[in-house]
Design a protein around this nucleic acid. Sequence first.
DNA 1: TCTTCATGGTCAGGAAGCCTGACCATATGA
DNA 2: TCATATGGTCAGGCTTCCTGACCATGAAGA
Lengths: 165, 165
Amino acid sequence: MSTEMEPGSRTGRRIGLLHVAFDQALAAVLAEAGPAHPELRMAHLQIFRFDGIDGSTAAELAAHAGMTKQSMHELVVHLERFGYLTREPHPGDTRARLLRLTPAGRALEQDVHRAIAGLLESWRDRLGPERFDTLWEILREITGDRRPLPDLATISVPGRLRGPE
Amino acid sequence: MSTEMEPGSRTGRRIGLLHVAFDQALAAVLAEAGPAHPELRMAHLQIFRFDGIDGSTAAELAAHAGMTKQSMHELVVHLERFGYLTREPHPGDTRARLLRLTPAGRALEQDVHRAIAGLLESWRDRLGPERFDTLWEILREITGDRRPLPDLATISVPGRLRGPE
DNA sequence: TCTTCATGGTCAGGAAGCCTGACCATATGA
DNA sequence: TCATATGGTCAGGCTTCCTGACCATGAAGA
């Protein structure tokens, strides 16, 4: 390690901070921007962080988000109950339900994207354009992004180190 | 945004992935490296991600980790119960308890640091030295690191967007 | 066609990781 | 000395996931 590198602990923390900062900015901007959506929780925003909600199925979203379909189910149902999306029959697969954003859902999606854009803008200001682009590029490289989305499905954070025995 | 920038969603996801990748590598390497510690969960490792456990108090750790002392309390007690640390009286403050790593605790700390070092090494291989250093520098900049640690205490991720009403 | 297996969705229950509230004991400073 | 802050602790709750168990449907092979 060339940069004077702390044992490693700080890096772990810093990555955590990056993540936290992102979530926080998201929550903050949204809490202010939309006087709406009081019934939404962070987990729901996590979903809106991705594109393509509209027109996909819960199972697909679950795969993209790296969670079980049961977990995603709950989020989707919640979102439906509060009018952010509807579930229409999937043409060509009677089992599946096609998710459709309502106007409210679309507005929320916009809010989330605006919040993210704002945060990125502030980072960009802080870092300067070149280094910001570099960060972007590095993130892409580290998280491996040749394919569009599905890679996420293979990643899952174990709640424990070992199985629940 | 100069790099062809997706609406923002991908960036959010990518940062999440960075975080997840880190946690995962940590879990994986440790699960393999130490056939020990079956009773440890990720939350405990999160603690070991920081230095300075040994000799600090639970309240300090809580501040560093950005969580309440009650939450940290549970983790610390757990760690104590399973022999990773002890709590001795704090000289100079009868209320406080000084945390002390046991040999097992110290070994675990080493494992965690080794795991992190290994992950960073792999990123370094993938990115090349200069860009790796750049990432490091950018992370430092974004997460703001003039002061040693305490800044984290001010950050908290809301579980909801609004207060619990 | 019948059978088998995979997949989308759903219900039920639980674990983990946090949180808030309420307290006690001790520091600390006016 | 008295108010207030702080370390630690207990109790209880909420959120966000998870696993297990199912049903209905789809796909693929015997």
